[in-house]
Design a protein around this nucleic acid. Structure first.
Lengths: 332, 332
DNA sequence: GTGAAAGCGCTAACAC
DNA sequence: GTGTTAGCGCTTTCAC
């Protein structure tokens, strides 16, 4: 690999001068600058990041903590964030969290080893050491799609409870009263969305019936499929289903197909997130949209401001959700 | 951030000794080793990667080149690769390629700056400078899901042409003779799969009819949907469709739904890849599976062998595809 | 067994 | 304007 010294030798100048040129600093005679630039182009020289970040004490790298099984929603989100971060001049480094308990600890190790300039979490970490480290290192942190007010981190998210209430109320408005729920236990959004469901029921004077709710152990289509089958096999009657994520809802839709049932004629189904594929299944999935694009952009923006030491105002940035009506729900 | 010097000072030893301990080298008195280890645990010290890789001249990082719009197939693939690479002791760094022409050049810059130990390409790059650099730097390279025999790189892929032929022949076997095709122009797999379609037709003595083929500009559901609408609007008759990717096929399935048509009753549809979601749409998508798991594992394995300087045998590792019959195709 | 010293590639004071 | 020097955090000879 070409190094700055070699370029310097070729140009007959000192490394400092080359450094000044490639970093666009002043105090280099225009003519010299040009000739060095030409040399750089010719040789294809690019400065070594490791060496650079060591002296600068900045890596220009933002760590993104994300589950290794990241779903389509998170996938869209991080693409947006990655893109914007690049525009701001930052690289992204992914830290994939697995379901094993040591994974979080492992992530912390890597975080320390990498010396990132900031961290964006698309995944809730529970190990207190992680948050302790982040705080103590006073590393810029932005939580995306969940909040942690107590910890004082910036966060970008929707009001999960309200979003779930919107979905459930839509079903109620359509005339449904026996509404099943596919919920889950992992991550705070699950209990928040489940709470929104209960509140909607309560407001409408509909009793909450445990026989119609099931807790999924993951948020993918296969779990949705499995859960819906279980719900069906319980024999309890329901005319509509609220699944706390679109992927779960898509799996439930699949179960209906397998069972020879139709949505929305037999059972109405609604999800949350509005992932890309939601509009392509048949019937198109009605859902509550999280403004992925806007949330991703905001996350990147806050991060860049935080690093620049600018004030970002409120710590909690709550985005409005939006009901998206497609074809999977009908009046009862 | 804690540094090796501080640990050394706390332990009352020199940095070299601490280094020996954390790197599990010999020549440290067991007792001393224990006390230093305890200190490391206590302080949560983790060696700085940048500094480490600078002196080692290895980064233990594998670059993964992937389109920023990576589809579900590629997403599954890289999760597997990332996981295995971690087991082998390597980190992964993603290089997202955008559709802009400068993106490839930009990627090359980053590649140079990062000093990765190896590169896995999940995306074909066309800029000759890239391959020139890879060769000249004699960096281990593994191409995944496409080949480049001429360039002498290792590659892991299926026989794209044969896979497409399998899909098309299945349709023919079912009695279809008017088979539409949604193909594309980007990346070599597209023309290879299109060629497989033509060969299957030819073998069956079915004339190739341009009126029934369309070229998509991307390989996502939206493009599949759009393409299928165009095919339908052309008015040409066909009883089956071969879409060169599952995402395209899923979009086409959606078009049928929108048009009030049914698969497989009105039109049979088959794709290629067998992405996760293929089994969850309604009807379940029949497709030709690429053994994602095996291919990902092999890719990581070859990479680790290449770095270790081991011989990996053949340069081209071709995996067998497999017809997956679900519900989207029926006899004509 | 352990420490001192050199050096990886780079940037930033500071000298000239 | 340009070069010299020191040093970022680490590992690795080479002394001792």
């Amino acid at each position: 690999m070409m190094s700055i010294k070699e370029i310097a030798k070729l140009a007959g100048v000192s490394p400092s001068t080359v450094s000044r040129v490639v970093n666009n600093k002043k105090w280099v005679k225009p003519q010299l600058r040009e000739s060095i630039l030409a040399l750089v182009r010719e040789t294809g020289y690019v400065a070594n990041n490791a060496a650079r970040s060591m002296v600068l004490k900045r890596t220009f790298t933002i760590g993104i903590v994300i589950p290794d099984t990241f779903n389509m929603f998170q996938r869209q989100l991080f693409s947006i964030i990655e893109h914007d971060l690049e525009v701001y001049g930052y690289r992204t480094l992914f830290f994939f969290i697995k379901w094993e308990p040591e994974s979080e600890f492992n992530c912390l190790r890597k975080l320390k080893a990498e010396n990132v300039d900031g961290i964006i979490m698309l995944h809730e970490l529970n190990h207190p050491d992680v948050y302790a480290y982040l705080t103590q290192a006073s590393l810029p942190v932005v939580l995306c799609t969940f909040g942690r007010e107590e910890l004082g981190f910036h966060s970008v998210h929707v009001d999960e409870e309200a979003a779930a209430r919107t979905a459930t109320e839509y079903l109620i408005q359509l005339g449904h009263r026996r509404i099943a729920l596919i919920s889950g236990t992992h991550f705070s959004f699950a209990s928040q969305r489940a709470a929104g469901y209960r509140m909607a029921l309560e407001s409408a004077g509909i009793p909450y019936d445990e026989a119609r709710v099931i807790s999924a152990v993951a948020y993918n289509p296969e779990e949705g499929r499995r859960s819906m089958w279980e719900l069906l096999e319980r024999g309890g009657e329901f005319s509509a289903l609220f699944a706390i994520t679109d992927e779960l809802a898509i799996g439930a839709l699949r179960t209906l197909y397998e069972a020879g049932l139709n949505a929305p004629q037999d059972i109405s189904i609604i999800g949350v997130d509005d992932i890309d594929i939601a509009g392509f299944v048949a019937p198109g999935l009605s859902t509550v949209r999280q403004p992925i694009q806007a949330m991703g952009k905001k996350t990147a923006e806050i991060m860049s401001q935080l690093i620049a030491g600018e004030d970002c105002g409120a710590h909690s940035h709550v985005f409005a959700h939006q009901l998206v009506i497609r074809e999977s729900c009908d009046t009862f």
